[in-house]
Design a binder for these strands. Structure first.
Length: 439
DNA sequence: TCTGGGGTCCTAGGACCC
DNA sequence: TCTGGGGTCCTAGGACCC
């Protein structure tokens, strides 16, 4: 491994070193800090026998892979059998999900020692604006070095940092710096740094956009910057086209932001290839609705729109959604709405015999006081006549179940109808980690 | 033997209102 | 009787990100 902090520091400087920075606006004070192969690195930290070895977190699917494993082509999201094929010596570890959260939080605490302007974007990644910290800790490159040294010494994890004038540039710089390095892009060297890089390093360029750009002969960020904005908008649509052409010429107005509340809450379950029986669909949706509404209730929220996604045997998927006049948040109501939507989706595709995934999400969220409860009878008189319990009763039953689970664990109690027999491909602890607000 | 789980944003058509 | 223009909300799908 690279010694802490000292090695692997690069600076993209074309002319004389230390040219004065053009304007205050133009200073490179944004840092993007990104932990390397995060889950795998934590495992290697916890178990020294794993260090230097090809390891993956997961089992049937790779959730994260160490750099040693990545060298053989193993990637996150890959099926476990495929990873073993590519890397016969790979060692799979179950995953200490609580430890990931704890280590991620500790790293963020270190970052906040340098500046309060920290925008955490995920468990293992954050932007910083260090403009106000220079007089305390030195120039931004020195701050990057100090941050990496502290994270390495105090926590034991490798961290890569990009330093630049904008978030977009800093993010690209940290990707270029990996693993365990840092890259500073001086304002005068931005073009020289970006032009040769492949377009897919840009924020917002995924497989689809990359294909379309390649078809138009655009492969590098330099190609993109040279292309007329109007032609990009024709090629990619107005929003994506103008966004990319701005980023390519280094216009990125994004600032470091405070965390926002989530706009939607969802859950999904991959099922393998299963026959789309009404029982399977019902039981799975009930499980998902229960997860989603439990989180909503915990946050004191409820939502007016319920969306269901059904992915079929051929991996194509459809979504159906409905917006109701009163925000809903009980397990039973969301289950009912989701079941109706799934029934419609399946009825629209009678040729599809199998489902491979079901998802439920609730959006159009509102704050929900404990006293303010949904009234399902207003939503659907048919259901009311059929004898469904009233909203208040649903809500209080759900809150009781939530309380039991908080004390004894989530599997301690369930609606009888909610027992989820579907293939749980991923541990509950991983779901809970992914759920967490990064703030 | 096709690929987990949790999110955001954009587009486009239609309904509806003024 | 036919017509305009603008705005908001809803739905479905797609692309992208970590």
């Amino acid at each position: 491994m690279v010694p802490p902090g000292e090695a692997n520091i690069r600076s993209y400087t074309m002319g004389a070193v230390g040219w004065p920075v053009a304007t205050h606006d133009g200073e490179a004070t944004i840092l993007h800090a990104d932990l390397d192969a995060f889950y795998a690195s934590v495992e290697q930290l916890l178990d020294p026998t794993l260090r230097g070895r090809a390891i993956a977190v997961g089992g049937s699917v790779v959730l994260a892979a160490s750099y040693e494993a990545r060298a053989t082509g193993v990637r996150a999201g890959m099926a476990g059998w495929r990873a073993r094929q590519l890397c016969p010596g790979i060692r799979f570890v179950g995953g200490h999900f609580e430890e990931y959260q704890r280590h991620g939080d500790r790293v963020m605490d270190v970052l906040r020692d340098f500046t309060p302007w920290v925008e955490r974007v995920s468990i293992d990644e954050a932007f910083l604006d260090v403009a106000g910290a220079i007089h305390l800790f030195g120039d931004p490159s020195e701050i990057a070095t100090a941050v990496r040294r502290r994270v390495r010494r105090e926590i034991g994890l490798p961290l890569s940092v990009g330093v630049a004038r904008t978030k977009h540039l800093a993010k690209i710089a940290s990707q270029v710096a990996k693993p365990d390095g840092q890259v500073t892009v001086r304002p005068l060297d931005e073009r020289a740094f970006l032009d040769p890089l492949p377009v897919e390093l840009m924020w917002g360029v995924g497989p689809s956009t990359q294909r379309r750009l390649a078809a138009a002969g655009i492969r590098t960020i330099g190609d993109l910057a040279a292309a007329p904005g109007a032609s990009l908008e024709r090629l990619l649509g107005r929003a994506v086209g103008s966004h990319l052409s701005q980023l390519a010429v280094n216009v990125d107005p994004r600032r470091i932001e405070a965390p926002r509340r989530a706009a939607s809450v969802g859950a999904q379950a991959a099922l393998g290839q299963r026959e789309a029986s009404p029982e399977l669909v019902r039981v799975t949706l009930a499980y998902l609705a229960d997860r989603v509404t439990g989180r909503l209730r915990g946050a004191g929220r409820a939502g007016r729109t319920v969306t269901v996604r059904v992915r079929f045997g051929d991996l194509r998927s459809v979504t159906r959604s409905v917006t109701v006049p009163v925000a809903v948040g009980t397990t039973l109501t969301v289950t009912e709405l989701a079941a109706d939507l799934a029934r419609d989706a399946l009825a629209d595709h009678p040729e599809q015999r199998h489902v491979t995934l079901l998802a439920v999400s609730v959006s159009n969220l509102v704050e929900q006081g404990e006293l303010q409860m949904e009234l399902p009878l207003e939503l659907d008189e048919e259901r009311h006549r059929s004898g469904s319990p009233q909203g208040a009763a649903c809500w209080s039953v759900d809150r009781s179940l939530d309380a039991v689970r908080a004390r004894f664990g989530r599997s301690s109690i369930d609606y009888a109808a909610v027992r989820f027999s579907g293939a749980a491909r991923v541990p509950d602890a991983f779901r809970e980690l992914a759920e967490r607000d990064p703030s």
